[in-house]
Every structure is written in structure tokens, then in C-alpha cells.
């Protein structure tokens, strides 16, 4: 599966990239929401985007809204990767069109289960 990871923390991108590659996925990355939108434009739709909430320029919520407003990305699944701190924001993101969320800290198994569930949906 072609996956886009958007997080301003290089450490989190490293963790997600390594984990997703171990699960057999092809991973691209972006350090903010605008860069994420640029990657979508240049590389075409991804099957899945893992999006942090607190990212610069275009935040996670705005990213979800912009992607859902473009029919070209209608099939792309989006998962918010967030901390428990932001549970109220998760509901907002799900309302805007995110498909799922993963709470930090997470295990490889949690990530795999969420992705498999979305792929089967």
C-alpha cells in the first residue's frame, strides 16, 4: 500500500516509516500539511495518509478538509495520529472526513490492525 506520513517530528516520521515498511508498505513523508498537499499533487493519490494534528502551515484538520474537498482523493483513507490530549480534536477530524485515528503511544500491532481494518472497509 502507498502511504504518506505527515508529521513535523523527524523522530515520529522515522518510527512510522520503519514500522510501515516492516509491514510491507511503500512510504513517502512530509513535515507539514502544505508539503503533504504538494506531495499529493506531485505523486498522485496515496492509498493512505497518516496525519499528525499539530503540524505547521496547514494543520492536520485543515489537511483533512482540503483533501476531502478534492474528488481526486476520494478513495484515499486518512488516519489521524495523535496524543490522548487531543481527543476532542479527533472527533472534529473524524467529522471532517478522517477515517480513523491512532493514539500515541502505539504499537506496531495497533498500527497494523487499523490499516488492515481500513483496507478491508
Amino acid at each position: 500500500m502507498k502511504v504518506l506520513v505527515i508529521d513535523d517530528s523527524r523522530a515520529m516520521r522515522m518510527i512510522l516509516k520503519t514500522t510501515l515498511r516492516e509491514l510491507g508498505h511503500e512510504v513517502s513523508e512530509a513535515s507539514n500539511g502544505q508539503e503533504g498537499l504538494d506531495v499529493l499533487k506531485s505523486s498522485g493519490p496515496f492509498a493512505l495518509a497518516l496525519v499528525d494534528w499539530n503540524i505547521p502551515l496547514v494543520n492536520g484538520y485543515e489537511f483533512v478538509c482540503k483533501v476531502r474537498a478534492d474528488p481526486a482523493y476520494a478513495a484515499m483513507k486518512m488516519v489521524m495520529v495523535t496524543t490522548e490530549v487531543e481527543t476532542s480534536q479527533v472527533a472534529k477530524a473524524l467529522g471532517a472526513g478522517a477515517n480513523e485515528y491512532v493514539m500515541k503511544p502505539f504499537t506496531k500491532d495497533i498500527l497494523r490492525d487499523k490499516i488492515e481494518m481500513l483496507a478491508a472497509a
Binding site: S9, R10, A11, M12, M14, I15, T18, T83, E84, V85, K104, P105
Partner: peptide, 26 residues
């Protein structure tokens, strides 16, 4: 992060910050 990072590099600092952020946030 499942790779060695040299102490003091931006990636190392980012990883320590992310760890502490996750501990406080949880």
C-alpha cells in the same frame, strides 16, 4: 526510533523531545 542517533544532533534532540512530549501528553 530503531536506529542509532548521535547525541546532540537535531534528530536526537527531536526524539528526546517527542519522548517527553508523549510521556506528559499521556
Amino acid at each position: 526510533v530503531r536506529m542509532p542517533l548521535e547525541c546532540g544532533t537535531p534528530d536526537f534532540v527531536d526524539a528526546v523531545g517527542e519522548l517527553v512530549n508523549m510521556i506528559a501528553g499521556s
